[in-house]
Design a protein around this nucleic acid. Structure first.
Length: 303
DNA sequence: GCAGATACACAGACGCCGAA
DNA sequence: TTCGGCGTCTGTGTATCTGC
């Protein structure tokens, strides 16, 4: 059930052109190099790894520190030259992984799951949506959920909203896999720049629309799955998938917003990412009668 | 060369936050 | 309501610098 919608998006092409080597301007990833030393290096004109490796030691550095910096950079360069992002994920400090976003833009899987509840030991996964920047892919319990582990392997990076706390531990436990990709968790990236709140409230803040599904939430997804299981009517499943897809499609502009705010906050010399202004059409459409039904029932529970 | 001062990196504790 | 990741704060460790 891989749903395919092809789009042409000039913004994504622009982002590919933007400095794909931005991670190679980062020095804090090296052991013994902190924020201040990195700033100092930029001020001294050392804009990337190659410049460090080709230049003589500046006076303000000790011989030991310079040698350590160079050997660390050789290590990281070897890993990146091999495109070994899983190894890069292991050796790069997690607080700096966001700097690899431009490097991997276009290869990131935006991911979100729906479940029957919050507890990964008692509840189960109902659907998983993955947006690869071009199209949505859906995995449904009882249909093709088992295809997910093989499918997700091909992405070097994933992006979620609070996936580190919820989605990934849930997937790892339920599907018995270990996802070792680079993981951009937008909840924590946005917190770094002072933006907090749930996904829906942040979408509102940045005027990212979710059409007629604005009033649905995680609990609605639980109810939709129960109704689908009881009636087997496709309208409930399609509304659930539409909701699930809307979450992952909206993660892409949020990732750009977070990255652009981070490079400004940390006073880096990195270039901005172009925010994709055009959203792809959701391959599933939420059934209007189902939305009304959900609203009515929610009102009767909470008068 | 040594001792004290300084700068910087790093580790641990604690509290906040968001997921269905 | 539960759980676990992350940020912030604070203290500690280490390397380097400075003055004698």
């Amino acid at each position: 059930m891989n749903m395919r919608i092809l789009i042409s998006n000039n913004e994504k092409e622009k982002n590919k052109e933007i400095n794909v080597n931005m991670i190679k301007q980062s020095f804090q990833i090296c052991e013994g190099i902190g924020e201040l030393t990195e700033q100092k290096l930029w001020q001294l004109g050392f804009q990337n790894w190659d410049k460090i490796l080709q230049s003589k030691m500046p006076e303000s550095f000790s011989r030991a520190k310079w040698r350590n910096l160079q050997s660390e950079l050789v290590k990281f360069k070897t890993i990146l030259d091999k495109n070994d992002f899983s190894e890069f994920n292991k050796v790069c400090p997690s607080k700096l992984l966001w700097r690899s976003i431009p490097e991997l833009f276009g290869k990131i899987a935006f991911l979100d799951i729906e479940t029957t509840g919050l507890n990964r030991f008692r509840n189960k996964i109902t659907t998983i949506a993955v947006y690869d920047g071009i199209q949505c892919h859906n995995f449904v319990n009882g249909k093709n959920l088992d295809d997910f582990p093989e499918f997700i392997k091909k992405f070097p990076a994933i992006a979620t909203y609070y996936g580190k706390g919820f989605d990934i531990p849930f997937i790892n436990h339920k599907l018995g896999i270990h996802m070792d990709q680079i993981h951009y968790d937008l909840c924590f990236l946005l917190r770094k720049v002072g933006i907090t709140g749930g996904l829906k409230s942040i979408e509102k803040q940045f005027k990212i629309s979710r059409g007629n599904m604005a009033d649905l939430d995680g609990y609605s997804a639980v109810v939709l799955w129960k109704k689908y299981q009881k009636t087997k009517e496709e309208k409930y499943l399609h509304t659930l998938l539409a909701y699930n897809n809307e979450d992952v499609i909206n993660l892409e502009p949020l990732l750009c917003i977070a990255y652009n705010k981070l490079i400004r906050k940390f006073d880096t010399p990195f270039k901005k990412l172009v925010n994709p202004v055009k959203k792809i059409p959701n391959p599933f459409i939420a059934d209007k009668s189902v939305i009304k039904e959900l609203k009515r029932e929610t009102l009767s529970y909470f008068p």
